[in-house]
């Protein structure tokens, strides 16, 4: 029994570390799609945010002696800003130029790793950006003493986890309980009706896309701080995984949390299964666990897409003439 508990205490912080950025980036995608713009550029935006954020962290580390958690916080903010700025290109193409949103997103997905590796190689002669990488909080004082919860939530944690949880709650309230949120949702559902009521469709869609950009950018920094001590010009499909979380979660914040938990658990299992007695006996290759979220998403899509919960106008450029 105590051994099982030990495994849970060991695994849960790892799952939490994956789950928070997944849920956060998926929530960003939710904002974008609810406003009517499909954003499959999350992967590229994460790379851009991660790259700029990690570069900044590296230079702050070298130039100052700030406490590590403050450096991490600055890095997260800078990454969010980079994602915000980068997603502007997607917003401009899809909203003003009425482009195919998949194409412009694909361009962003290709551009970000190319420029990141190009700049890194030009400056460091290597694609790697290395940071000191000590941003794990081993124990939160006092709180880690609480039985069970202390072990689950307040040991081996990251600042980004708490920040992410707060942002997730705030933005969910914004989307469902405020006037702005109602407008965003109406633009993705029936933009012409919203327009007739005086809502500025273009502006709202910009807000949706830029919020998703900021969250994805921050997600990129979280990815690097939590899973590596260096940035290689890639977030290895994490952005697309977040998209799968959004779909598996059927465009709903609470379900997104469940989906993020499931996907995060699979990620953790794939990298630690040799240490878990039950899974050790099954001896499946790690790739099976890595694949599972995508397979599950496909299955869900196959069964629910006839009555899809996706925003109705997502992916369609707004054309006043169609009113």
């Amino acid at each position: 029994m105590s051994q099982t508990l030990g495994i849970v205490y060991f695994l849960f912080p790892l799952v939490l570390a994956s789950m928070v950025p997944l849920a956060l980036v998926a929530l960003g995608a939710l904002f974008s799609e609810r406003s009517g713009v499909i954003n499959i550029a999350l992967e590229g935006i994460m790379v851009m945010g991660g790259f700029v954020g990690v570069m900044s962290i590296r230079y702050i580390e070298m130039a100052t002696t700030l406490p590590p958690q403050l450096i991490a916080f600055l890095g997260l903010l800078i990454g969010a800003f980079a994602g915000f700025a980068f997603s502007f290109f997607h917003a401009y193409a899809s909203i003003n130029m009425k482009s195919n949103q998949i194409i412009s997103a694909t361009a962003l997905n290709l551009f970000a790793p190319a420029i990141a590796v190009f700049v890194a190689r030009t400056i460091f002669l290597s694609r790697r950006v290395v940071i000191s990488g000590n941003y794990l909080i081993r124990e939160v004082p006092i709180l880690s003493e609480i039985p069970i919860i202390g072990n689950l939530f307040f040991t081996r944690a990251y600042l980004s986890t708490y920040l992410g949880i707060v942002i997730f709650i705030v933005l969910t309230i914004v989307l469902y309980k405020t006037r702005l949120g109602l407008r965003i949702r109406s633009c993705g559902e029936n933009p012409h009706a919203a327009d007739s009521l005086g809502v500025n469709i273009y502006r709202i869609r910009y807000i949706g896309v830029l919020i998703s950009g900021a969250l994805a950018g921050m997600g990129g920094v979280i990815f690097v701080l939590s899973f590596a001590t260096r940035f290689d010009g890639t977030v290895v499909g994490f952005g697309f995984l977040a998209l799968a979380v959004l779909i598996f979660g059927q465009w709903h914040p609470l379900k997104i949390l469940y989906a993020a938990f499931f996907f995060a658990a699979m990620r953790v299992v794939a990298s630690t299964y040799s240490g878990i007695p039950v899974l050790q006996d099954i001896r499946l290759p790690a790739e099976v666990y890595r694949m599972l979220p995508y397979v599950a998403t496909l299955v869900v899509l196959a069964f629910v897409s006839k009555k899809s919960q996706a925003p109705r106008a997502a992916g369609e450029p707004y054309d006043v003439g169609k009113r």
């Binding site: 482009s99 194409i103 361009a107 290709l110 790793p113 190319a114 420029i115 590796v117 190009f118 030009t122």
Partner: peptide, 22 residues
């Protein structure tokens, strides 16, 4: 120059070809 400049060029070409309809 790092050869990634080619990927950058291709990405920008895709981005602008998304404008083709406009």
């Amino acid at each position: 120059f790092m050869p990634e400049i080619i990927d950058i060029i291709i990405a920008v070409i895709i981005y602008f070809s998304a404008f083709s309809l406009f």
